[in-house]
Design a protein around this nucleic acid. Structure first.
Lengths: 212, 212
DNA sequence: GGTATTATATGAGCGTGCTCATATTAGGAT
DNA sequence: ATCCTAATATGAGCACGCTCATATAATACC
């Protein structure tokens, strides 16, 4: 069965469509891989020839959305905006593109390893997420208050944390057009950008040990 | 089999001990409920007579640690410290008490619903975590810059987000005594407290829609 | 002691995500 | 046309968390 490349791509798309439908209908946990396979007209095992795991399948869908947000952002003409404004616009784009997947986006992205441990290596497992983080790194480097200095790992981790917080609020935001989410995003980013100007400290308390 | 209260408590403790051991050895996912039950000398089903789920079992262990941190904090004599210092001391206590469970603490707490949607109702499912959040709310209310005003839901959500970020960094922190974690904690809290003085905005960009 | 009652313990079994030996078939060689 | 081969599809089966009908045994009553 030396199937044509085209057939394989069609199967892949059928799986992605089925997954989009069922993940949106039932959320990440209640949408089973068996059901997705049936909806796509294939056997359960076949699904795993195309995607290594249910999580990777969902991430593929979300990654495409993030990539689209990225292009939308790049397509706009920028000049003179502050770092906070740029990050706001980029992240609002991401939220808009993730809109159709609000039901499961946060559940999946939350489980991704952020840029914590490994120095420099942004370790989000999905490539689109890695690119997003690299893009953020670049924006901070070139538009941040510490001209030209790339952010530390701790700073990047902080950014990722805040993004996850916004996503998890957004996933449950019942306000008309998720306006509250934009308020939270704004507050998060202002806070974050402000903190870039401050050096890294460590609070000293007389009766507090300085380690854990 | 109308077993004495004491026997039930002993079984419960045996389960908790077994869980502490295996969760620490293998992490949350690789420690199976079957193995924990065997280690505790009971049948698999029995475990679920004592705890409704594997997650609840782990949360019980972590909840006890958080409660201990809480009492340590209460036991100290406070006077004149800033909000940032109080939050720092409280959270450092929590981290210290969670120390023995570093392997799985973050994996479990991360999955807990934060104080996002429901107004006022802090919805962390474990009681110790709810208490912790209520305590934080109280500290912000009485020591924050907006004297006497309780924080908004968004503000609390932000705090929870930052705490999760610290936990996830801490879980992987390889620095000698997790000193980097303290740096991150410090930066997070300074940032957070600073943001309390600023009103909630929404960034306005000429070509950016004001909703999602 | 014997029996009834009833809280608790038990483990077969279910639905998951995922694997892997096997069956199937497309496409080249003849 | 026919066979051969290797890429792909298949679904029985595994280990997981968790459930539930049933077995077991501790107490109350006589």
């Amino acid at each position: 069965m030396r199937v044509t490349e085209q057939t394989k791509l069609r199967t892949r798309e059928r799986i992605l469509d089925a997954a989009r439908k069922l993940l949106d209908d039932k959320g990440f946990e209640r949408a089973t891989t068996r059901d997705i396979a049936i909806e796509a007209g294939i056997a359960t095992g076949t699904l795993f020839n195309y995607f290594p795991s249910k999580e990777a399948l969902a991430l593929t869908i979300l990654g495409e959305a993030v990539e689209q947000a990225e292009s939308e952002f790049q397509a706009r003409r920028w000049g003179g905006e502050s770092l906070a404004e740029l990050l706001f616009a980029l992240t609002a784009s991401v939220l808009r593109c993730l809109g159709p997947y609000r039901r499961f986006a946060c559940q999946v992205i939350e489980t991704q390893p952020g840029p914590s441990s490994m120095p420099t290596a942004l370790q989000a497992s999905d490539e689109a997420l890695r690119n997003y983080l690299e893009h953020v790194t670049e924006l901070i480097t070139h538009h941040g208050p510490t001209g030209g200095q790339p952010p530390t790992v701790i700073t990047l981790h902080l950014y990722w944390t805040l993004l996850l917080g916004v996503l998890s609020y957004w996933a449950q935001d019942r306000s008309p057009h998720q306006e509250d989410t934009l308020v939270l995003l704004d507050q998060s980013l202002r806070m974050f950008v402000h903190s870039l100007s401050e050096p890294h400290h460590r609070t000293e308390l007389s009766d507090e040990p300085d380690h854990l």
